[in-house]
């Protein structure tokens, strides 16, 4: 196996690990609550900002 091929396999392994960890991280039930809370914050921000502009 050439060095380049080894690098390809390592790269693949790295990307697979990252994908698995991303799935683990984003499928935690609390994640939706963080996003929901932050969406609320941004919604209020948008309303306040538009109010400020007018």
């Amino acid at each position: 196996m050439t060095e380049e091929q080894k690098k390809d396999y390592l790269y693949l392994l790295f990307i697979i690990t990252v994908i698995i960890l991303a799935v683990l991280y984003f499928t935690v039930p609390e994640r939706s609550m963080i996003i929901e809370n932050q969406m609320q914050w941004w919604k209020e921000f948008k309303e306040t900002f538009l109010g400020f502009l007018s």
Partner: peptide, 17 residues
Amino acid sequence: LTVNSLCVMPAKIREFM
């Protein structure tokens, strides 16, 4: 996008300005 402190809400920012 997700680290806005909930201790500092936009309405309060507007009020303080």
